[in-house]
Design a protein around this nucleic acid. Sequence first.
DNA 1: ACTGAGATTAGCATCAGGTACTAATGAACC
DNA 2: GGTTCATTAGTACCTGATGCTAATCTCAGT
Lengths: 197, 197
Amino acid sequence: MKTNGSSPRRNKRERQTQLQQLISEDPFLTDEDLALRFQVSIQTIRLDRLELGIPELRERMRHAASENYEKVRSMAGTEIVGELIDLKLGESGISILETNREMAFKKTSMVMGHHIYSQAESLAMAVIDANAALTGVSNIKYLQPVESGDKLVAKAEVVRVRGNKHFVHVLIQNRQVQVFRGKFILVTMDTIKEEQP
Amino acid sequence: MKTNGSSPRRNKRERQTQLQQLISEDPFLTDEDLALRFQVSIQTIRLDRLELGIPELRERMRHAASENYEKVRSMAGTEIVGELIDLKLGESGISILETNREMAFKKTSMVMGHHIYSQAESLAMAVIDANAALTGVSNIKYLQPVESGDKLVAKAEVVRVRGNKHFVHVLIQNRQVQVFRGKFILVTMDTIKEEQP
DNA sequence: ACTGAGATTAGCATCAGGTACTAATGAACC
DNA sequence: GGTTCATTAGTACCTGATGCTAATCTCAGT
């Protein structure tokens, strides 16, 4: 019953922990690859995976693929950062951004400013009633640090429209306390775009 | 020789373009799935893929998986947006950002402001000589629209340091012409962080 | 109506990377 | 010697393909 310290027959335990690590680092390893790496038979690897509940290569790929697909899609494919909660076109809007470790400095786990800015700016773009617009000017103040995991609520309000210029204020709160204030001047297109055909 | 308008025997051309689109939208479709969708045999789908040079499901998965792996890693895992080209700590720095479709509005293919801002802010953070810092204030002007594909060169310069406040100016150029100007006040930590333990 | 070309389908052998299961062998321990 | 756990071997089968050959279908041109 002693848990056989170093060589439990043929260091199964050790191999399995290593195997788990290896696969998590590189999910694209076949059983054959692993068998070679550990100098055991393929069957042993299969047994190990079975015991550890590690799915086969294809499953792992399927997983990694669709998982990252989602991530990339939601990071890049979208025009608004965060989730749009409320929108009165031309007037005001609210969005929520759930921050995570990836948005933060590793060292301090404080959310990097540009993620907060992105929520604000993209919300500002969303509220103005225009087919196409660009940011002209912005005036930003970060009032309080934001920690990874915090849930940011942004409120945007159009305060003035003059010609093709839209003045939008955005406030962001984290648990009722203000962490960000931004003033944006957004410019609708067809006027700034007098460049190439 | 007439390019047979609508039904070129059995709308092969049409099917192939649709197929290409379908697969690019969802790379996880098997030949069988596709065969059902188009009401043709699996063999036809295989021929189509062959003609179009579309690899098999597993290849596509492998691709998507590792590609997005990279993407997620480079978008999320990194603290600086763009590529750091030059850095004199505490003085100045240069970074380059290659913009792409994903950074742009689909409608206009103009790069969204917050991507440009992110390059600027993260470069500003990089140049100041501090273990940990946060953005306090920023003053931003977008001078010219940036199109998807443009290569942005950002130059940051520390203009003044007063206590824990660092004043950094960032200019971004696109093909020698200025497109962005930003003034940042960055605050080093251990002073702003007087909140929770 | 006949021919020929292109489009589509069928069928089969083969492969990779597995699952699932059975059984043999090895080693260690008492 | 017997028991137990670890490892290996071997077989049948599965999916989603490739690669190849061959048959059929459809239509346009003459």
